[in-house]
Computed example of a mutant assay.
Amino acid sequence: MVDVQSSIDERSREINSKDERIKQLELVVLEKSNSLTSLHSEIQSLQVENLKAEISKQNTRKEALEARINVAEKKIAELNVKLEKLQKINEEQKC
Rank of each mutant, 00 (worst) to 15 (best):
E49H: 03
V71Y: 03
S45F: 01
K74Q: 09
L25Q: 09
I15L: 14
N34R: 10
L39V: 03
Q87F: 06
Q47V: 12
R68D: 00
I76V: 11
A64N: 03
I15Q: 12
E63M: 08
S38W: 12
V29T: 03
S38N: 12
E49D: 10
K23L: 05
K52C: 04
E63A: 14
V28Y: 03
V29L: 06
E26L: 08
V4F: 08
Q93G: 03
K85T: 03
V4K: 11
K23F: 04
I43N: 03
E84T: 08
I8D: 10
E54L: 04
V28E: 10
L36G: 06
N50F: 03
R61F: 06
R21E: 06
A77V: 12
S12N: 08
K23S: 07
V2G: 02
K62I: 08
L46N: 11
K88I: 06
A72P: 11
A72V: 15
M1R: 07
E49I: 06
V71M: 05
K88M: 08
Q58R: 08
R68L: 00
R21I: 01
S41K: 13
I8Y: 13
L25Y: 05
L25N: 08
S17C: 09
K32E: 14
R68C: 00
V29S: 04
D9Q: 13
Q5W: 01
A77Q: 15
E63T: 13
I8S: 09
L79F: 02
L27P: 00
E10H: 10
E14K: 12
H40I: 12
L79N: 02
E10R: 15
Q47D: 12
K75M: 11
I69L: 10
N80S: 12
K18C: 02
I22H: 08
T60K: 07
Q58I: 08
L79S: 05
E66M: 02
A67K: 08
K23M: 07
I22F: 05
S56Y: 13
S17V: 00
N70T: 06
K32V: 14
T37K: 15
Q87M: 11
S45D: 12
T60P: 01
S6I: 05
N59P: 04
E63V: 11
E54M: 01
V48W: 02
N59Y: 03
D3M: 04
L27C: 03
I69C: 01
E49A: 11
I15R: 13
I22Y: 09
S56R: 04
R61T: 10
E49V: 07
S12T: 08
S7N: 13
I76W: 10
H40E: 14
